[in-house]
Design a protein around this nucleic acid. Structure first.
Lengths: 244, 244
DNA sequence: GGGGCTAGTGTGAAATTTACACTAATAAGT
DNA sequence: ACTTATTAGTGTAAATTTCACACTAGCCCC
């Protein structure tokens, strides 16, 4: 923090925000990418991000940019980290603040703006080369997600309102990049009492239909208030179970 | 990220870095503050921070600024968060990136520069009003420290090379703001095999002298390499033990 | 050598984690 | 109608970890 008498420190520079939006679909953890419609890196895939305005708070900018690029709004965004290497942007000094969010893919329609030619949900494993240092930013956000998922029941943000325990398990497996034991996972999750059994079952599946659950937000808020800490432990499975 | 044709986005603005340096002394967790020698907030206490230069990476800037303000160098700095509210700085748009670090207080001499009138280690509980939004930044870094201390043996960064188990416990208690059970703490710490018993004892204390230990960095690096995860669990003590 | 002070030590109960394999329910095909 | 394919759903015992808890040991000082 320095004096304003010395305006040398104020040089022409820019801030951007870049958003890493995670979703979950078809058993895959996905990230929302846009095909850039502007130089630099025109035509390449990158994160939905853009410039912060002069008189705009960072958090506000993250929301605005996300909305402008993809049509998404009222989405919870959390700051993850800031990337400011001198050469990260080919044409000037641009420091970017990365935000991440979790959304239910099917509850939103993505409407790419002109800046973004196109937007798409790409499986996290299939992400190829990205513009700028966006691959690094994505990695940082994915790590944050891994951390978060162990200490808060964020998984529910990514699933539709009604879901099966197997879907929930697959989500956790995708995020943590491990296999989990079915029985232990169910025991653990159910013991938290954060799920409401809807007494409904799946329809139109060619096998025994699974029960549907929803997340008990009220209970969760209650528990949060009294300083409860959610924790998912079980480590990677060591062996594959023999099937009958 | 946008086009450079549109230079509107590059406005006169500034980045700063602010460093939250933690130390531990006399049983207290402390933070290094400077008495500001410049407007704004001249004469007030604040974090050691200053402007990032135009062609300087963020991480580099954090190190440089710390050195210039306090004389400290070769200190591990980790980025924590970025603060960018429009009005956080009274005279212009200044976005700051907060870094934090842990050092052994007695191993460094602080040499405040002219920008910093004075520098001092202030107990975390005695920190009064700070310049800018530095109180908020400090809080964020303290939370990060709490998080970190549970998953990595960072405590050793704050203690002198040789320390007693009681000192280590007091440090953990100061960071986690709880009391820990002596026997359980010792059991847990020793079971990690990250301490080397130096076969020496304290000198010049008016009571039974404690054994001295040092941190086994080699062992730790080994364990890290094989993907080991350190975890300190024990929750806050519920009762005070009756003393004989 | 007694008082004051902190170091250091062990055990059992409770809770949690882990490994592990079969039956149940449905749809589709014969 | 039955056989097959496919996923849902369930229980237990062993191992490990956590947790609560109280006394003896060793040094200094007087």
């Amino acid at each position: 923090m320095g004096t304003m008498e010395n305006l040398d420190h104020f040089f022409k520079s820019a801030f951007t925000v870049d958003n890493v939006i995670f979703g979950f679909d078809e058993g895959d953890l996905k990230v929302l990418l846009i095909k850039r419609g502007e130089e630099p890196y025109e035509g390449q895939w990158g994160l939905p991000g853009y410039f912060v305005n002069e008189n705009e708070d960072l958090d506000y900018a993250a929301n605005r940019v996300l909305k402008q690029l993809t049509g998404l709004q009222n989405v919870f965004l959390e700051q993850v980290a800031t990337f400011g290497d001198v050469n990260r942007h080919p044409t000037g000094r641009v420091i970017t603040v990365a935000y991440f969010s979790l959304i239910k893919i099917n509850q939103y329609t993505i409407q790419p703006s002109s800046i973004a030619n196109r937007a798409a949900w790409i499986s996290i494993d299939n992400v190829e080369e990205l513009a700028f240092d966006h691959a690094e930013i994505l990695r940082a956000c994915f790590n944050r997600l891994k951390l978060l998922v162990r200490t808060r029941p964020v998984g529910f943000e990514l699933l539709p309102r009604k879901f099966t325990l197997t879907e929930l398990q697959h989500l956790y497996e995708a995020i943590l990049e491990t296999d989990l034991d079915k029985r232990n996972f169910r025991k653990k999750i159910l013991s938290m009492n954060l799920l409401i059994d809807l007494d409904e079952t799946q329809e139109g599946v060619a096998h025994r239909p699974a029960r549907l659950y929803k997340f008990d937000k009220e209970k969760y808020d209650e528990l949060l208030a009294e300083g409860f800490s959610f924790e998912l432990k079980e480590s990677r499975r060591k062996m594959v179970e023999h099937m009958g």
